[in-house]
Design a binder for these strands. Structure first.
Lengths: 347, 347
DNA sequence: CTGTTAGCGCTTTCAT
DNA sequence: ATGAAAGCGCTAACAG
């Protein structure tokens, strides 16, 4: 309110709200601006008496440091950009939570961008976001346009690709192999005795890669007639339910392998409404996180991925890069966080 | 790899990666820096020949405008801060998606902060984030610390509180009344003939307010012995399942009213595993979005909230504020987006 | 430990 | 339609 009065006086004509600056604080504290800056960011470099004067002045003036100016002057934005396909697909929720927890604790802030599974859109977002001079970038997946890769590389900041693995990462890559997952799952289920498979997947690139390598592995074991139903992302219960209908049209397979737990839940619902017992009449396999579904639906099998671990490792990798005096050197990281097949018959 | 070579050449001694600036572009294009700036941001002010020279120079140099500098000079950051309790609770997913769609289209970027339902944490985040000089702030809910409100007010930027309603908004408020929702729901269910109620809620403040006004309204209708089970947020299927167990201990009520669809799904699962038919043996009421659950579980009733509408309205309100020559004036907005009771018996 | 001097890269505000 | 000068608010680098 004191502030508002000031405004009414000050801005006789104009629009600009003139905010309190470092210089104002310095004047009130009776020290040099630089001393205020130090008192705020490196308190160990100033006498505690000075420190107190400054903090008092900060409080008195209601000073809020302008990080735009700080970042410009220091070439350090304390900003990390995170680009995800969507926020609706909750597979990333744990990852983002863990990532942001780690970053926030280290006083980094998060710039979020949603790509909608479109590499083109990702490219535009990268370009726009790089203008903010983030200290690091996190991307979902390893499939990017050439321009995206080039821009990211030119930016010379840590880049983490997550939720996938590749032999040619831009910089750091933390995740697991969707191909390997598909193959292992196929072998696992064959070993369990299943022979009649259906696959229900949304058209998100990683889901499709899992599905394809799953089906290929089945073929290598002479299992060919796999019903493969693809629906548009995002994966919802409704999509799962409709997909199940489509699959069940041609008679029930032994098992339906879904690209996500959400889909799998939709399938469960559809199975229930048709009076099919799971897993006796119809086994259902999901993908995602245990906490979401597997504990709750005793009949549901799933492939568990530790999203929180991916986020935590990403935060740690970034912070390490930020802190280390990485003078020109690169410390590539390739972390396979793995996955676990949670199986109702064996568990 | 090209990247690394370049590094080794260029930075003979130092650490700083010197990037291409407006001045470099101007030199290459043979014009003044200011002309480059205009060509990029207000093309209508430069001759198309000049325009072309500049764009060529931009491409040739790989120039990426430094928005930190731009924002500092122009006092316009093109940044909107969004503070949410969590990203795990998917009730906000649609809202965030719609909000960001709107903002991104207008070339605004989003700074995300997670408060974990803690007003204290929100306060810290607000302080930190205000340092970025965002052009607007979006907050979930209307329950903030005094310091939060004061800082936000002092910032003199549009502030939107969403997913709730209040008579004393900071600035703009877009959502619905959780009290009214609880009351209407109570009256609705009483009218349908229900008498034995249980409530299962997580301890998120808005969920509790819905639950409390629901129960109070029941009491006003002389229904008193309501079982009220509260669990820690976030709401997961597992929490729903456990909560259902706790409730069913004391014999099944006619209906369980849950603070979210996710919880409700957990209750459905538990009911199924006990052989209870829904809604005949046990009716289940959720809360959230239709697409999540109600279309899929024919037995599930729910209160539908249009999260996407909240996000879209928020984006629109912000953009309007940004564009209008809001010279000192305020255009308060109070938008009740309402809710709809989706009922299995009536629908 | 504190102060001074120079910018960071851009845009505003005049001139031309 | 284009240019020149003067900052935006802060911090690096050095001097004391």
């Amino acid at each position: 309110m004191e502030h508002i009065d000031e405004c009414k006086q000050g801005d006789a004509i104009g629009a600009r709200v003139e905010s309190v600056t470092l210089i104002d604080v310095a004047r009130v504290a009776g020290v040099a601006p630089m001393t205020v800056s130090r008192a705020l960011h490196r308190p160990e470099l100033v006498r505690s008496a000075t420190q107190k004067k400054v903090l008092d002045a900060v409080r008195a003036t209601g000073y809020v440091p302008n990080m735009l100016a700080g970042a410009l002057a220091s070439s350090k934005s304390s900003l990390v950009a995170v680009l995800l396909p969507t926020i609706a697909s909750s597979v990333f929720a744990d990852t983002v939570q863990a990532l942001m927890d780690g970053l926030t604790a280290a006083r980094y802030q998060t710039l979020l961008g949603l790509t909608g599974y479109s590499p083109q859109r990702e490219e535009e977002l990268v370009e726009a976001i790089l203008g903010r001079r983030p200290d690091g970038v996190v991307l979902a997946g390893t499939d990017h346009t050439n321009a995206t890769v080039e821009r990211l590389t030119r930016a010379k900041i840590p880049v983490v690709e997550i939720w996938d693995l590749t032999d040619t990462p831009i910089d750091i890559v933390i995740g697991f192999s969707h191909e390997k997952l598909g193959e292992e799952l196929a072998r696992h289920l064959i070993k369990k005795g299943y022979r009649r498979f259906s696959v229900l997947s949304v058209d998100d690139p990683r889901a499709l890669r899992r599905a394809n390598s799953f089906i290929h592995e089945l073929q290598r074991h002479d299992i060919d007639n796999v019903r493969f139903v693809i629906r548009h992302a995002p994966a919802t219960l409704q999509v799962g339910r409709e997909g199940a209908s489509a699959i069940l049209e041609g008679g029930a397979p032994e098992i339906v392998v879904c690209s996500s737990d959400t889909l799998a839940q939709g399938v469960l619902a559809q199975a229930a409404s048709r009076g099919l017992k799971v897993p006796q009449d119809l086994a259902v396999m999901g993908f995602g996180d245990l906490s979401t579904a597997a504990h709750v639906y005793p009949a549901l099998s799933t492939v568990r991925v530790d999203g929180a671990a991916i986020g935590a490792c990403t935060a740690q990798a970034l912070l390490e890069r930020f802190s280390r005096d990485n003078q020109g050197k690169n410390y590539p990281v390739r972390l396979d966080t793995g996955f676990a097949i949670i199986d109702r018959d064996s568990a």
